[in-house]
């Protein structure tokens, strides 16, 4: 490929310390540890006061009735094992994490985590499903169902204000292969519009596309109540929407591709406070 210096290419080089190029396999450890943004910001910081107010007041946040319903399910025995979430974990906000000693606080900040069974990342949604299958011996809630969205919101909420953390970019970390895969996804052009995630969310973050102020594409607000959807939704729904918008075939909910991207995005947003369930435009 011939190299031509274009305005856009220049802008990328001038942009916020973007040492990460389009290539992913030859990165040195030093390179990959470098943060792609000088300043990391949440979509909250560019939301209108009205949208922020909706998020700030749990009562006004339209996600919360889903969380209320999930809180009832939390205490309800289910499946062949006739166990409830509370039987093992105590109350959702129990700092000790009930009889199993696994508190929900912190989950939202640390996930996606490594799942030894699948040898890859597992997110909160899939972890809830796995709990239902393995421990309750129950049929898991469907991805993107009201039940799973409610339960994900309830779990993630326990980490509100905690900072996103991940070691996935370290070669010794079991999530490193997924991190690499997610990074490759992020920088690959796709769809008829031929855009990579980075064209909007790295090169042009905080700039208007029509009336849409481009975000950094951070995941710290998920799950979210999106005004456009008029409904709660998961990060993978957002991925699918973004892919569709650029006329690219989306991947399935919970797919390896999206789990890898989720793992990589967590790294791009490390340090950001967990806001889920948030409210976004």
């Amino acid at each position: 490929m011939h190299k031509v210096k274009s305005v856009t290419a220049m802008a990328v080089l001038l942009g916020a310390g973007l040492a990460l190029g389009a290539c992913t396999t030859e990165s040195t450890t030093k390179d990959v540890m470098k943060h792609p943004y000088k300043e990391v910001w949440s979509g909250y910081s560019t939301a209108t006061p009205e949208t922020r107010a909706m998020q700030d007041d749990d009562f006004a946040n339209p996600y919360m009735p889903y969380v209320d319903a999930a809180a009832e399910l939390w205490d309800t025995p289910a499946g062949e094992a006739k166990k409830s979430c509370a039987d093992c974990h105590g109350a959702p906000d129990d700092a000790k994490g009930g009889s199993m000693g696994i508190p929900m606080k912190g989950v939202g900040a640390k996930y996606p985590a490594y799942d030894p069974e699948s040898h890859g990342p597992i997110n909160v949604e899939l972890r809830i499903q796995k709990c239902q299958t393995d421990h309750q011996k129950a049929k898991p809630f469907k991805y993107e169902s009201d039940e799973l969205l409610g339960m994900t919101g309830l779990v993630v909420m326990q980490s509100r204000g905690m900072k996103r953390e991940t070691k996935a970019a370290e070669q010794s970390d079991p999530l490193y292969p997924a991190w690499l895969q997610g990074k490759a996804f992020y920088y690959q052009r796709r769809g008829q519009l031929d855009l990579a995630c980075k064209h909007c969310h790295e090169d042009n973050a905080a700039i208007l596309v029509r009336a849409e102020l481009l975000s950094q594409g951070q995941s710290n607000g998920f799950p979210t109540y999106r005004l456009k959807w008029q409904k709660p939704g998961s990060l993978h729904r957002r991925f699918r929407g973004c892919n569709n918008n650029i006329r690219s075939e989306p991947y399935a909910y919970g797919s390896d591709e999206y789990l890898a991207l989720e793992t990589y995005l967590a790294w791009r947003g490390r340090g950001l406070p967990i806001e889920g369930p948030s409210v976004r435009k």
């Binding site: 009562f59 009735p65 209320d68 319903a69 399910l73 039940e147 409610g150």
Partner: peptide, 9 residues
Amino acid sequence: MSKKPRVKL
């Protein structure tokens, strides 16, 4: 899943 309306009084 029945989602009860929220009322703050």
